[in-house]
Design a protein around this nucleic acid. Sequence first.
RNA 1: GCGGGUAUAGCACAGUGGUAGUGCACCAGUUUUCCAAACUGGCCACGCGGGUUCGAUUCCCGCUACCCGCUCCA
Length: 508
Amino acid sequence: MSDSAETPNLMEALVSLAKRRGFIYASSEIYGGLNGFFDYGPLGTELKRNIRDCWWRDMVQRRDDIVGIETSIIMHPKVWEASGHVAGFSDPLVDCKVSKQRYRADQLFWSPVVVDGKIVGYVSALESEKTVEELQAAAETFKRKKAITGALAPVVAKDFTEASEAEIPLIPSPATGEPGSLTAPRAFNMMFQTNVGAMSDASSVAYLRPETAQGMFVDFKNVVDTTRVKLPFGIAQIGKSFRNEITPRNFIFRSREFEQMEMEYFIHEDADWAKCHEEWITWCETWLKSIGLPASHLSRYTHPKEKLAFYSRGTVDIMFKYPFGVQELWGIAARGSYDLTQHANASGKPQELFDEASKKKFVPHVIEPAVGVDRIFLAVLAAAYAVEDVKDEKGNVEQRTVLRLSPRLAPVKVAILPLLKNKELLTNRAKALHAKLQKRYAVQYDDGGAIGKRYRRQDEAGTPWCVTIDFDTIEKPGDTFTLRERDSMAQRRITEAELFALLDEQVY
RNA sequence: GCGGGUAUAGCACAGUGGUAGUGCACCAGUUUUCCAAACUGGCCACGCGGGUUCGAUUCCCGCUACCCGCUCCA
């Protein structure tokens, strides 16, 4: 028996299964696909919906301190100026054509070498604690090698975004030390632009949101004024976001259109934000385990202070061991009062609460757990996938592909199978049960092929239980069915009432 | 975006300068009393565009997508 960790080319197997069983298709596939976009098929749509529903129930409906909203994808462009995304949500990149190295332009520093007031050449260095020293040393070496005499001026460290067109070909590549191989920085904003209204001009430019969070900040006062929430409280939202990623990769892990589940938890400015931050990290970890992700695949990554995003005072990522490596799943950021303050300044509308104790107004601080539905989907799929060796009655070893999805997430909760297709007594009873279950649960009726084949088919779809209507059901007293469990393949007899009780308990 | 690789049916793979097969899956039927049974029949593909050629799925070029690196985020 092998589990997912030992399966070679697990990603290929997942992509293949996802396609084969209708979980995920490439977007616009008949036109050759579109990089960074995906469609969810019938089973995938159910699974994704279940992920959203579980999160919403646990995050919003089962709590007293969190409310939900749904804001528009296109917001006033000033939202993104205030949030910092127009200016800061870009990564200008520079390529060295010789060494094939790629640098972020804002991390690649350079300086003219000035001798006796004249520019005699250029030096470069990568961002570090000693960038200026390195540049100075490089300038001295340059002067010596070129046998230039005169007074060397101190270097002036500038990053590559400040290099002019004329200067770019003169600046040496950090990799080769020779000028001429660096490209101009390609700086583009990761936000998708569009135009509102029929006229396309500068005044109509708008953006598809790159995160749902700003909706919560912009509607902060509305929620406070209309819902009687009291600190600490949270506002949650699930919705699509869009980022024009340079390199979409790893199936649905990094795509250009994705779905976020974000919650902004507002706390008093004097509250212990670090403690609250830690509590939310723990909450997220617990929740991930509750939907079936193994603790062994989860870890934490604390962002070093100097590399924090522009809005963050502290960020911890919950990492997941995907088939392609340990990568981010859930980011929990302490955003301070950054966003509300920015919007207060930009809009001229104060985003404050009144503190009854101190009789003073203050801007709340915020802790933000932000997770991608698609990433959870991928993590869940990877963790659930298993190929097992099973022995048939003759002792022959066969392989069984099974998705061990939690019953909460499984696209189909129960499959109802008449043992035989051509015996009306069986099919009628099965159809009656199916109709009854269908009112409350996602269930499937299947009478195609041999019973064993149908079990395996449901295993691949992740259906936790199969119910078989057999001859004992109609011939023996008690009206019982065979209940077959996906993971153990064990069978037992169960009544209709017991079946409903089982589902009520396990499916939520 | 740069470098390397790949692209044949729903999935996994063969194969050929004269338009393609296999397994599984799927559909119809016969059969079948619990773990991918059997038989019969059926559906379905050379990623897209151009070039060379009498003829291109095969050779060449471009594009697109996917995979592996550089880089990045949910």
